[in-house]
């Protein structure tokens, strides 16, 4: 992980005014030269975590590639809100083909650049968790296995938000979605064994895998820039709360993302060639209730007909993540 000599911060956040930092520690978003790859005027909801994540990720990738970037987009919210014909928010060359083929289209773009001798042009593919962990999974695995020179970014908001909040294989247990309703004796999504895509990506042995959240945007920028320094298949999964799907206030997007990380529900780490090389430690550990209770998608676990046993199972998942990735500081 990057050594961050943070001199000033407000309690509970890593927010630092850029003017207090040395110029080389300032974020790409603070730069006058940022590319504004996804420009203002798009139609994302207020408080959209995906729009924020994409803005930071693609601007960082643009900076690292000296503006030599082509972006491929899976079908989904990001595609729909950014390119309602005849408008486009994209200031980079951008292509959308289908829901399930963004990794393969990116492979094609990278192959074209290679064959034309334009190795300076880099390729980023991006999609939501449905497009990545479900329908695009085959193409993603193929792209990983071939180690094609593509950075794939998954904006993970844990359900199919674009079509109206249906369950994906990234939806957490107990969560309410339109297809896992909070009814019956075990309301919400089932407790399955899950599909841990960052670990599946690591199992391919690709050069770089990382997770990040929109609560730690410097860490996000650092990981994108690090990934762009490498070649071959790379994967970054960014936790991007969705106010609509999570049932949270628009102004709480960053807070929810931080709680996901601080509770251990979303472990933030990076790995090279299948080995974990760093984790973002939990700074102020919170219980799972603190993460779950502000979200309407978990409202059925609390209140009059509470399900403390389900909350306990979710806490156990967070605890397992904390143990597995060593998310707590040694002295905690």
């Amino acid at each position: 992980m990057p050594f961050q000599p943070v001199k000033f911060y407000q309690t509970g956040t890593y927010t630092v005014g850029n003017r207090l930092l040395d110029p080389d520690e300032r974020s790409e978003q603070a730069s006058e030269n940022r590319s504004n790859s996804i420009n203002s005027g798009h139609r994302a909801c207020q408080g959209c975590g995906e729009a924020l994540g994409a803005r930071y990720a693609i601007d960082a990738a643009m900076a690292e590639s000296n503006g030599q970037l082509i972006a491929v987009n899976a079908t989904g919210c990001l595609e729909v809100f950014s390119t309602p014909y005849p408008e486009s928010s994209w200031q980079v060359p951008w292509i959308h083909s289908l829901f399930g083929n963004a990794p393969a289209v990116a492979t094609g773009v990278a192959a074209a650049m290679k064959v034309k001798g334009r190795r300076e042009v880099r390729v980023v593919a991006q999609g939501g968790d449905g497009g990545t962990t479900d329908i695009g999974f085959g193409c993603l695995s193929g792209m990983f296995e071939r180690n094609d020179d593509v950075l794939y970014i998954c904006y993970d908001n844990e359900a199919y938000m674009n079509t109206g909040v249906q369950r994906s294989s990234a939806t957490p247990p107990a969560a309410r979605t339109a297809t896992t309703m909070p009814v019956g004796p075990e309301p919400g999504n089932v407790f399955g064994q899950g599909k841990n895509l960052p670990e599946i990506a690591m199992a391919h042995g690709i050069p770089y895998v990382a997770t990040a959240t929109v609560a730690d945007l410097r860490d996000l920028e650092y990981k994108v820039r690090k990934a762009m320094k490498m070649h071959g298949a790379r994967y970054i999964q960014i936790f991007v709360p969705c106010p609509l799907g999570f049932g949270t206030a628009s102004h709480d997007t960053i807070r929810i993302a931080r709680l996901a990380k601080e509770s251990g529900m979303f472990p933030v780490f990076e790995a090279e060639h299948g080995e974990v090389t760093g984790v973002l430690k939990i700074r102020h550990k919170v219980g799972i209730e603190e993460y779950l209770s502000p979200q309407k998608r978990f409202a059925h676990l609390f209140g009059k007909h509470a399900h403390p046993e389900m909350v306990a199972r979710l806490q156990a998942i967070a605890d397992r993540n904390i143990r597995k990735y060593g998310l707590l500081e040694e002295n905690n």
């Binding site: 082509i70 491929v72 292509i95 083909s97 289908l98 399930g100 083929n101 393969a104 289209v105 990116a106 492979t107 094609g108 773009v109 990278a110 192959a111 074209a112 650049m113 064959v115 034309k116 085959g138 193409c139 695995s141 193929g142 296995e145 071939r146």
Partner: peptide, 22 residues
């Protein structure tokens, strides 16, 4: 020459490469 993992990927890779001018 790209050995893809399915015909869906074969056409999708061709879409990407053709759109990128190859």
């Amino acid at each position: 020459f790209i050995n893809v993992e399915s015909e869906f990927a074969a056409m999708s890779v061709a879409i990407g490469s053709s759109a990128a001018g190859a």
